[in-house]
Amino acid sequence: MKFTGIDHFVLTVEDVETTCVFYESLGGEVVTFGDDRRAVRFGDQKINLHPIDNDVPHVAGDPTPGGGDFCLLTETPIEEVERRLREQGIEVVTGPVERTGAVGPMTSVYVRDPDGNLVEIARYDRE
């Protein structure tokens, strides 16, 4: 098998609408698909949102709100990301810090979404 990337992943959340508002404030695009399901798209990838009491047939073994830890990539300078987060009242938990991503060094800040998922926002360092 040859893999080409990640299309989407799923977060189990307490309140889909609150989660949509949070990720939309980060620049995501809220989309509706299938049987009125919700997701947030970032570029060519999306985060599907399952409510804790969902009726989706295929889910993780123990879907739990707040169990996610993932990274969103940005082209925006991290200083600008920090400023925008402060303006929206979103606390930066850690950062900026140097990290290593899938394809090289990057600078990251970390925030928590309404369910407590750890969201890394990172920009690849450029020469």
Results as ranks from 00 to 15, higher is better:
residue 99 R to Y: 09
residue 113 D to G: 01
residue 87 E to G: 04
residue 24 E to S: 14
residue 102 A to F: 01
residue 113 D to N: 11
residue 8 H to F: 13
residue 60 A to F: 06
residue 99 R to P: 00
residue 94 T to I: 12
residue 68 G to L: 03
residue 59 V to C: 08
residue 8 H to T: 10
residue 110 Y to M: 01
residue 71 C to H: 04
residue 117 N to H: 02
residue 59 V to A: 11
residue 33 F to I: 08
residue 1 M to C: 09
residue 113 D to H: 02
residue 36 D to V: 11
residue 84 R to A: 12
residue 13 V to C: 05
residue 46 K to Q: 15
residue 119 V to I: 12
residue 4 T to L: 14
residue 112 R to D: 07
residue 99 R to C: 03
residue 16 V to D: 12
residue 54 N to M: 08
residue 15 D to K: 02
residue 63 P to A: 07
residue 67 G to D: 15
residue 48 N to P: 01
residue 55 D to R: 13
residue 9 F to N: 01
residue 1 M to H: 10
residue 32 T to E: 13
residue 108 S to P: 02
residue 6 I to T: 11
residue 12 T to V: 03
residue 31 V to D: 11
residue 63 P to S: 11
residue 66 G to W: 00
residue 62 D to G: 09
residue 1 M to E: 04
residue 75 E to H: 06
residue 74 T to C: 02
residue 26 L to C: 03
residue 121 I to T: 03
residue 45 Q to G: 15
residue 75 E to I: 02
residue 80 E to D: 13
residue 17 E to G: 07
residue 42 F to H: 04
residue 23 Y to T: 04
residue 16 V to C: 06
residue 83 R to K: 07
residue 76 T to Q: 00
residue 124 Y to Q: 12
residue 58 H to M: 14
residue 59 V to F: 12
residue 77 P to A: 03
residue 104 G to K: 12
residue 120 E to K: 00
residue 19 T to K: 09
residue 74 T to E: 01
residue 52 I to P: 02
residue 16 V to I: 09
residue 35 D to Y: 13
residue 25 S to M: 13
residue 42 F to A: 12
residue 3 F to A: 12
residue 57 P to L: 08
residue 68 G to N: 01
residue 30 V to S: 07
residue 2 K to L: 15
residue 9 F to C: 03
residue 107 T to P: 03
residue 90 I to H: 04
residue 111 V to L: 01
residue 61 G to A: 05
residue 106 M to R: 00
residue 71 C to F: 00
residue 39 A to M: 04
residue 24 E to M: 11
residue 68 G to A: 15
residue 13 V to D: 08
residue 63 P to I: 11
residue 59 V to H: 13
residue 15 D to Y: 06
residue 62 D to V: 14
residue 67 G to S: 14
residue 1 M to K: 12
residue 94 T to E: 15
residue 50 H to A: 12
residue 99 R to N: 06
residue 121 I to P: 00
residue 30 V to P: 04
residue 40 V to E: 04
residue 75 E to G: 05
residue 54 N to T: 12
residue 83 R to H: 10
residue 27 G to R: 00
residue 27 G to S: 02
residue 38 R to V: 14
residue 81 V to Y: 00
residue 10 V to T: 15
residue 10 V to D: 11
residue 21 V to G: 13
residue 102 A to E: 03
residue 91 E to R: 07
residue 17 E to A: 08
residue 73 L to T: 10
residue 74 T to R: 03
